[in-house]
Design a protein around this nucleic acid. Structure first.
Lengths: 238, 238
DNA sequence: AATAATTACTTGTCAATACAAGTTTTTTTG
DNA sequence: CAAAAAAACTTGTATTGACAAGTAATTATT
């Protein structure tokens, strides 16, 4: 007796609460409604509600305390794993804008790719895109993404403006980033990158090459990111 | 009716299976016994068994496939935190040497410290040291470490040559690094750093400011690391 | 013999219930 | 009034039962 679609109830509640947290309806430190209250509110039983909350806790959106409740926690990894921290204050998602430089296109994988590829990936072809990400109208990231064309129908037709690639993948294809690896170095930017990031000559750039593992077997997400760390620094946990 | 201790059953099964995986009783790619078999084997009901498996899946020890089973996966779990990867091949610990520039001394915490300090830390004073780390005789890292003087007797008298600070803390004080956070940026090095890292003029440097959490309540480890990423890049997992 | 349909087995979802174990609030007691 | 005890919350653990959905092996069919 599913109401509408075949999305599990615990998943629906997870999405609802997650949205409420990220949109600020619950502030950091707030107590979520108790499990029994959520049962009444959304017409589920406690195991189902608990499954939703377990997911939220696992993804760092809440902390559970026995006898007390579920405390809201704002995960710092805003832009999936790669978040920015200003020198003075943290930056919300509001001021972050994305400009597409190269729309998603299906190409052949480049020779000499930065990571080793599986046969399946090579055969499937590569979804390629370039994006410039601005914080308060100042360009911060230049992001080149590579993605194997595995189980992602019509992705090149979607609108990416002001939506993170992660969000698109999560909402429409149920792809979750589980982890990954990265190489980091400080470089002198190429003229092209310097132009996009509006850098003065001699200003160094942070370069990240990352490979992200997803919940989908065989699907990885690669990006080469150039980052102006003049005003902001890249923040990460480990 | 707990048999012995107050450790939950699902936790016990988690530990058992986790040990079996890490000890190689199950190899990578193997199928774990089915949930119903585990129920019979360990005298639990399916929700309990599923809770154990959910934990293992969450921690990357297995992958679950509906209709198929739980497939064993060996997590990469590299706690190296800061490892170096050359452009061609990975580098072992053998060629890594450490030179002490400033021996461990007890000082006052600097004003305007890179991270917020607790009152306990401020009161306890700061153990300070500077080290240069060389890979194949080429200087790669310049590491400035800060450490609150909490439960670390006689640490300033110890020999640090060719031993990582982590090793000293682990062996003599049972301090384990549990995780942490870091800020990363690309900078133009100061003359002092440039001299130590033997950099050519104009060559950028990777700067990491990190705060590490330990198993000791209230004890954190801070470092400011300058890194020559000309030949090697910094490698990390997330 | 190759293909299609069936069956058996797997994990996924969900309900209803019970009690244990922490935390907070209220009430009782001195 | 203050402290202790009780009650009323909270989340944690565990059982039992049922059906859905995906996968693999078996059987029947052509």
């Amino acid at each position: 007796m599913n109401s509408g679609a075949s999305i599990p109830q615990h998943r629906k509640l997870y999405e609802i609460l997650r949205r409420h947290i990220t949109e600020g309806i619950y502030a950091e430190g707030d107590l979520l409604p108790s499990e029994n209250e959520l049962c009444r509110l959304y017409g589920m039983t406690r195991p189902t509600v608990r499954q939703s909350l377990a997911g939220l806790a696992n993804d760092g959106y809440i902390r559970k305390h026995q006898g007390k409740g579920s405390i809201v926690q704002l995960p710092p990894r805003d832009i999936g794993i790669l978040s920015v921290s200003g020198t003075t204050s943290a930056v919300g998602n509001r001021n972050l804008k994305t400009r597409i430089i190269v729309k998603p296109v299906l190409i052949q994988w480049p020779g000499e790719f930065m990571f080793a590829l599986t046969e399946l990936e090579k055969e499937s072809g590569c979804i390629y895109m370039e994006r410039l990400r601005l914080l308060d109208a100042a360009p911060i990231f230049y992001d080149i993404s590579y993605l194997a064309n595995i189980g992602l129908p019509r992705i090149t037709a979607r609108k990416f403006e002001n939506k993170s690639l992660f969000e698109i993948l999560r909402e429409h294809y149920k792809v979750e980033i589980k982890g990954g690896e990265q190489r980091i170095r400080a470089i002198s930017p190429s003229p092209r990158i310097r132009k996009f990031l509006k850098l003065e000559s001699g200003q160094p750039v942070l370069h990240l090459e990352r490979r992200m593992v997803t919940n989908i077997e065989g699907l990885f997400l690669y990006s080469s990111i150039f980052c102006n760390t003049g005003k902001y620094s890249v923040f990460g946990r480990f």
